[in-house]
């Protein structure tokens, strides 16, 4: 928490330094800065969501009136420590490589008896409409804090998924000729003022992946990795993928594999 706060302060200071000279965007930047400060005043707003997620995890809910405490996120039923850091992962019971969100939804359907449509209706929050998934993922993510990302993709299905993610990462299309690699394939580049790391290296992928899920100040909400990647596809000017689509899980597998060995620091706080 302390380290996180210091880092955020440094981030805000850098942000302020940049903001100093921006003319046309002065008011917008000042706006964002104010939000940053607000966010800092009482720590990371994601911490509150984490507490909410913890409550949702153990609460008996759904047609089966069951909690999620028997949910197997890959480390065995109910075992949360390090689970996020080791996802996506191959699951025998579904014969699929699943990320934290698809596995969580699977548990809500099988253990609590919700339908998939019910559970995923509010997969991300909008002003005034909170998302249970966001809260639960924030809670699950925090249980990997301080642990190393561990997705070596040794199972053949995982190795295949990582390869397919690599394919999508370099695939160019759309009216701007974009691919993930255009924006995230080189060291030390920025788009406008946003730093973009090289997500194909351990360092670049690690710096990015260790902080998710993250509170996004500009959005006033915690974003999950699915939310992040679906928005990057929007920025690429592509159509909208399905929530929990295999292509997103494949990209996550590729990125987590690249980031493997990096110590998690989540929930993060971002622009």
């Amino acid at each position: 928490m302390n380290r996180r706060l210091i880092k955020t302060l440094v981030g805000a200071a850098i942000f302020a330094a940049f903001a100093g000279g921006v003319s046309a965007q002065d008011s917008k930047v000042a706006d964002e800065l104010a939000k940053y400060r607000e966010a800092l005043a009482d720590g990371n707003p994601a911490d509150l969501l984490e507490v909410k997620g913890e409550g949702l995890w153990s609460e008996k809910r759904g047609p089966k009136n069951a909690s999620l405490e028997q949910c197997d996120l890959g480390q065995g039923p109910g075992k949360l420590e390090g689970a996020y850091a080791a996802l996506p992962k191959y699951f025998k019971d579904t014969n699929k490589v699943m990320d934290v969100e698809s596995r969580l939804v699977h548990c809500m359907v099988t253990l609590q008896g919700f339908t998939q449509a019910e559970v995923t209706k509010q997969w991300f929050s909008r002003p005034g409409k909170e998302s249970d998934i966001e809260a639960l993922v924030t809670f699950i993510g925090a249980k990997s804090n301080g642990m190393k990302i561990n997705v070596p993709a040794t199972h053949p299905e995982e190795a295949k998924m990582a390869k397919m993610g690599e394919y999508i990462f370099y695939r160019r299309s759309g009216p701007q000729d974009f691919s993930c690699s255009i924006c995230h394939g080189q060291e030390g580049k920025r788009i406008r003022l946003q730093d973009l790391g090289n997500l194909t290296t351990k360092d670049g992928a690690g710096t990015a992946m260790k902080t998710w899920p993250s509170y996004r100040v500009s959005q006033g909400a915690v974003w999950t990795m699915q939310r992040r990647l679906i928005d990057c596809m929007r920025q690429a000017r592509w159509p909208e993928p399905n929530y929990l689509a295999d292509s997103i899980v494949a990209l996550e597998t590729f990125l987590q594999k690249n980031a493997t060995g990096t110590v998690m620091e989540t929930p993060g706080i971002k622009r």
Partner: peptide, 14 residues
């Protein structure tokens, strides 16, 4: 897996 990946990508949209 390139061919399969293309197929997967194309069918993953709403």
């Amino acid at each position: 897996f390139a061919k399969e990946a293309e197929q997967m990508f194309r069918t993953s949209f709403r």
